[in-house]
Design a protein around this nucleic acid. Structure first.
Lengths: 171, 171
DNA sequence: AGGGCTTGGTTCAAGTTTGAAACAAACCTA
DNA sequence: TAGGTTTGTTTCAAACTTGAACCAAGCCCT
C-alpha cells in the first residue's frame, strides 16, 4: 500500500499546529512556574481537584480527566503533597484506592494564581481568536480527542493503522 | 483591575484543546518510539535537517525552526549523534558555530519511519477533520504562534500581561 | 589594540516523564 | 475458598527537559 502523504495544506496546518502548541505550552509553563512555582500540569491538578465534589478525587479518575498516565500523576501528586498543596487519603470502599484531596493551602495557592493564569491564556490564545475561531477550536479539538480517547477501549486488532511499515517526511 | 474570567465557551475550548494536544502528542510519541526508536522531537530534527540545503543547519537555526531552546537541542543532537543519525561539523565562517548534519543513516531511518508517521498523523488528525477544518486549524495555529513568536523580539515592558497578580480557575 | 557587551553553544544539577516491573487488594470461577 | 486474573497504585531506572551558569568567539567602541 502506497503512503498517502500530506497535502501542502495539511503540511502547513500540521507545522503551524506543532509550533503553536509548543510555544503555547512553553509560555504557560513559564508563567505558572514564575507566579505559582509549578508547571502547568501541576496547576491543572489543583484546578481539577478544586472543582470536584469535596475537593477530592481518586488517582485514577484524576489521571483520566487530565489525560495523563497514573505513573506521571503519582509523581506529580507526591511533589504537591510535599509542598502541602494536596493530601493523600485512603479510600474507604476500595483499599487499593488512593484519594488526592486539595488542602486549604492548595486552594489558596490556586486562587492566588488563577487570575494571572487566566490572563495568560486569554492574552496568548483567546485575545487572538475571533469568537468563531473559538468554536472551531473546540470542535477540532473534540474531534481529535474523540479519536484518541477510545485507545483504551479499542477492540483488539492486528492491523492497527499506526503500526504499518514504511519522501517527504512531515515533521 | 478585575480578572476577565473565561466564558463557558472559552473554557470548553480550552479544555478540549489541552486534552487533544496532550493525547495527540502522546500518541505520536508512542508511535515513533515504537517504530523509529525516538520521540517526536527527535524525528522532527531529522525531518527538518533532511529538507535543509545540504541537509545541514546551524544549531541556533535548527532550534529556532523547531521552537525549542538551544539547551534542549544540544541534548537531543548529542543523542542523535551517538546513534549515528547526525554528525556535528564546525562552521567555517563563525568559529563559535556548530552545524548539525544529517548522516546517510539518519536519512535512511527517516525515510523508513516517514510512512508510518504520516499514517499516524493522518489517522489521528486529518482523517477526523473536514477540509474546512484543516484550514481553520492552520489559521488558528498561525494566530497563536504569531503572538508568541515575538517573545524574543518584544520591546522592554514593565507591565507584561502575564505578570499580573491574582474564582473559577481554568485548567 | 584593549576593554566590554553580545551571540552561539555547551554543561550541570535539579526536576520531570516514561514504561516496565512490582505489589496489593478486588474479583472471578471452578 | 483456593487460585488465577484484573485493577489501582507505586516504584525504579533510564531518558528527557529546564534554566542558570559558563566558555568562547565575534563585535563595537574609543
Amino acid at each position: 500500500m502506497t503512503t498517502r502523504w500530506l497535502t501542502p495544506e495539511e503540511q502547513r496546518a500540521w507545522r503551524a499546529y506543532i509550533a503553536a502548541s509548543l510555544l503555547l505550552e512553553d509560555a504557560i509553563d513559564r508563567q505558572l512556574q514564575q507566579d505559582a512555582g509549578m508547571p502547568h500540569l501541576y496547576y491543572s491538578i489543583l484546578s481539577v481537584l478544586s472543582e470536584s465534589p469535596d475537593r477530592r478525587l481518586r488517582m485514577t479518575d484524576l489521571a483520566e480527566r487530565l489525560k495523563i498516565t497514573r505513573s506521571r500523576l503519582t509523581y506529580a501528586v507526591t511533589r504537591l503533597e510535599k509542598d502541602g498543596m494536596v493530601r493523600r487519603e485512603a479510600c474507604r470502599y476500595d483499599k487499593r484506592g488512593s484519594i488526592a484531596a486539595l488542602t486549604d493551602e492548595g486552594f489558596a495557592v490556586l486562587e492566588r494564581a488563577a487570575p494571572g493564569h487566566v490572563e495568560t491564556v486569554r492574552s496568548f490564545l483567546f485575545d487572538r481568536l475571533s469568537e468563531e475561531q473559538v468554536g472551531q477550536l473546540e470542535e477540532i479539538s473534540a474531534a481529535i480527542a474523540e479519536g484518541l480517547q477510545e485507545e483504551g477501549t479499542r477492540p483488539a486488532s492486528d492491523d492497527v493503522p499506526w503500526r504499518r511499515r514504511a519522501s517527504s517526511a512531515c515533521s
